[in-house]
Nucleic acid binder design. Structure first.
Lengths: 142, 142
DNA sequence: TCATTTGTACCTGTAAGTGTTACAGAAGTG
DNA sequence: CACTTCTGTAACACTTACAGGTACAAATGA
């Protein structure tokens, strides 16, 4: 799979922001923790901003901070903010409509997609950013 | 996401094979239903063969058929046979180990991956190829 | 021997993600 | 106002992965 590490990056960045709720974090600072480029981080923050998870401020002393308390942000929201696609894609080209299987398989697969998506939602909405933040901090002590 | 339609194609092809358990289906015939190239299908069948879901035979009157009864093949097996990756990828480059978040975030994300994978398994292992086959056939009547 | 069919190597085109540079515009400061 | 610091975003190159396609060796049945 041409896997997307956007979700990982998003959780990473948001965990950073969760460390100091009212501080403005610079994209450059965040980029150094993620080990990537500041522009990559800003692009990601743009998506998170669009999803009302963070607030950014331009200009001197600008930066980005959480829009809400870490307890009120769950991972499903983060996942939705950065994932445009599904777990698996439907056929690239529509299958042969003259074939009884080809004609109906897409509808069946589409139902499956939704079922899986619900499963992911169930799992991810159990965790808040606060939970993740605590797990990360605990790990630091070991 | 650069999404993978391999799973969709696999379910499609296996549904075709399920229509006639002991018939040898030619890759060219299957390709026409999927609306793709015979080589693409053969590559896919190679993976399914490796996972012991189908049996292929070279030579004249060769082709591919199911290795087992459709009731004994569940979608989780199919998913595993064609999906090398996870739902989301970990960081492309390792994060900054000097940052307390960077140092521990990967372990946390890794646990999350497993949790989500379990969720998908729960969902997919509820369906057998027989179930899908029946759904497809029913749709054809409508 | 010959036609058929898989398995696979190899090449191409295309799409997406990532990394970078560059720069306009916003915002605080002297 | 001039200057500095940041974000937002456009533009471009690089890499990777998937899909489509050609070609051919090897297997198999007639």
């Amino acid at each position: 799979m041409a896997a997307n590490s956007q979700f990982s990056m998003a959780v990473h960045v948001l965990s950073m922001l969760a460390r100091s709720k009212d501080e403005n974090f610079k994209s450059d600072y965040l980029a150094k923790s993620v080990n990537t480029n500041a522009v990559v981080v800003r692009r990601l923050l743009g998506q998170l901003n669009h999803a009302n998870l963070v607030v950014s401020q331009t200009g001197a002393n600008g930066g980005t901070r959480l829009a809400r308390c870490p307890k009120e942000i769950d991972l499903w929201e983060i996942y939705q903010a950065v994932n445009c696609g599904e777990v698996f894609a439907l056929h690239a080209k529509a299958p042969n409509q003259d074939c009884p299987v080809g004609k109906n398989i897409e509808a069946v697969l589409c139902c499956l997609q939704k079922d899986i998506d619900n499963g992911i939602q169930e799992k991810l909405s159990k965790y808040t950013l606060q939970n993740v933040f605590e797990m990360v901090e605990q790990g630091a002590l070991v």
